[in-house]
């Protein structure tokens, strides 16, 4: 009969363990969740994960810009500037995409999952 633990069983179990470990490294580790860098007046202000939905206020040179974070994307909700171009930009969701309120000196930069693009031609 074919019962009992054999040498090959250990080998298969070992290889299976390696395979499982490798799968985590390969499928999980190389693709960290997208994050959002918030820059204020030429300096990095914060780096926020784009995992859950929330809104927050960023203090710029004119006043507070309200931004919304959501899984994988972000946008300006309101801004103290006059033109509201930042709000009109809408959602940014790809690594390298930018939304900016230049009068308030606040800009949002999506950092890609595996950074598919080094820059986005706008």
């Amino acid at each position: 009969m074919n019962t009992g633990i054999r040498a090959g069983d250990f080998l298969v179990a070992g290889l299976a363990l390696v395979l499982v470990g490798w799968s985590y490294v390969h499928f999980w580790h190389s693709e960290p969740a997208a994050s959002l860098e918030v820059w204020v007046d030429g300096a990095r202000h914060a780096s926020l994960p784009l995992i859950e939905s929330r809104t927050l206020a960023i203090e710029g040179v004119l006043g507070a810009s309200r931004i919304e974070l959501a899984p994988g994307r972000a946008r300006f909700l309101a801004s103290p500037c006059e033109s509201k171009r930042c709000v009109h930009t809408g959602w940014i969701d790809q690594g390298g995409m930018v939304a900016a309120c230049l009068p308030n000196r606040v800009s949002l930069h999506v950092q890609g999952r595996d950074r598919r693009y080094d820059a986005i031609n706008l």
């Binding site: 598919r116 693009y117 080094d118 820059a119 986005i120 031609n121």
Partner: peptide
């Protein structure tokens, strides 16, 4: 890469070619 608001010039490469997305 020198990127002025999305308009850019890229020279050389990184460990792979520079990859540019077009909006």
């Amino acid at each position: 890469i020198v990127n002025a608001g999305g308009d850019l010039r890229a020279i050389g490469a990184r460990e792979r070619p520079w990859r540019i997305g077009i909006r």
